[in-house]
Design a protein around this nucleic acid. Structure first.
Ligand SMILES: [Mn+2]
Ligand SMILES: [Mn+2]
Ligand SMILES: [Mn+2]
Ligand SMILES: [Mn+2]
Lengths: 219, 219
DNA sequence: ATTAATTTTTAGATTTGTCTAAATATCATA
DNA sequence: TATGATATTTAGACAAATCTAAAAATTAAT
């Protein structure tokens, strides 16, 4: 597999909800910032190699082989993100770009030893689950903060948007994964929320709340 | 710089004795296992970009810029080798191939943080010096084991040949970097050596002795 | 059910890095 | 110094990954 093929497989995986549904050519093109014609070319190659099922004009669907390949790449990506954050003190908004390069290094031994070195982490610095050696994905029951009602409580365990700007925003307001969050009240006017996070109170917009994953406290 | 350009620069650096002398096209071709015509093509590109000085039929010479680029790649290569050996328990015969991939990752912050994480090592697992951030190379006065005379002593600090087969041979005979070595005597017939290494005695061929670097004991 | 808008594919070109075969320059040797 | 051997470059081709422009299929709107 070339770097380019791997990047396409990964993009299709994300766009298809983990291989659940099929993905239109243009969606891949805009995700990857290439031309639709380039996508068509690559899809044909991936189809020949049986990573995807492809019917002209009907979009593309990941095969079992394609899903497993995607999971292997995502496993590498997220383990490297953990390494960068935990061992090299990278901030969580800095890890992604470097991991985009590191995910293409080919060595099974390397990634398994890295996994061990990191203590077999289950989640990356953004709270996304790390696929296991055989593609197993940890499942958690989590909610978006925006879906919670007053008096509900939980732990902040992940971000939906992991753009640099959002992550920096969270840093600025001292919101971090692992923080305890309680909804105080929700403004009817704009659905903004007053929350208690750890010891301090905070007012946040709906936009923010739709991008934070919470593991609700079991009552 | 592309991966391929980086690999050429590195090969030229090694073949030219660190940029000291010029390198013939065919030497590069055989080192890189490509055709001489491919080398000519690449040399032209590197010359346009001013990494090398090139006169048709006269071989190629690294520029200052080329030397610095080579040192930066070698720094990355050797730091990754240390990481693999020290942190992930790779054997010293396994680190090179993976480092060949890792050396192309582009992130200054990554390599500086890695350097710090490793405790600013000065030598890689084969005893080769690791260039500093600004290209400084540690210099040691060392000798080949084959150049030593009976009763001379020293510490084994590096290998000249770092092929997998040689490294495995050393493992098998319990020869490791850091070992104390004393020459007992040299056979006149084939220049093989009887040595004392740490506590045990060993008979080794001239071929072996020409591939071990020793830091002589100051008398 | 036509027609118009959108999406997708095809055709043909470009760049990068490689190759083979042929031409040319340099080197070694008589 | 002429000649043959060796080293190097040129010419032309190819595969991979991309692009633009044009054609074709699908979808949406009248
Ligand atoms: Mn990421
Ligand atoms: Mn992540
Ligand atoms: Mn190496
Ligand atoms: Mn080394």
């Amino acid at each position: 597999m070339t770097h380019s093929e791997e990047n396409y497989i990964k993009a299709i995986y994300h766009l298809s909800g983990g291989g659940m549904h099929s993905v239109p050519t243009n969606a891949i093109a805009s995700q990857m910032e290439t031309q639709p014609s380039s996508v068509t070319d690559m899809i044909k190659k991936l189809s020949d190699k049986e990573y995807v099922l492809y019917k002209k004009y009907r979009g593309v669907h990941l095969s079992e082989k394609g899903i497993n390949t995607a999971l292997a790449i995502i496993r590498k990506h997220r383990l490297w993100e953990v390494f960068l954050a935990e061992k090299l003190d990278f901030n969580w908004d800095e890890v992604h770009d470097v991991a985009e390069q590191l995910e293409h290094i080919k060595s099974e031994k390397l990634i398994d030893k890295l996994d061990e070195f990191l203590g077999f982490p289950k989640y990356d610095p953004h709270g996304d689950p790390i696929p296991g050696k055989n593609g197993e994905l940890a499942q958690r029951s989590l909610k978006l903060l925006s879906a919670m009602r007053p008096d509900e409580e939980g732990i902040c365990v992940g971000v939906k948007d992991s753009s640099v700007s959002f992550l920096k925003f969270l840093d600025k307001h001292n919101i971090a994964l692992g923080d305890h969050i309680k909804i105080l009240d929700v403004e009817e006017f704009d659905e903004s929320l007053n929350i208690q996070i750890e010891s301090k109170q905070l007012h946040i917009s709906k936009r923010i709340a739709t991008n934070l994953f919470i593991k609700p406290k079991l009552v």
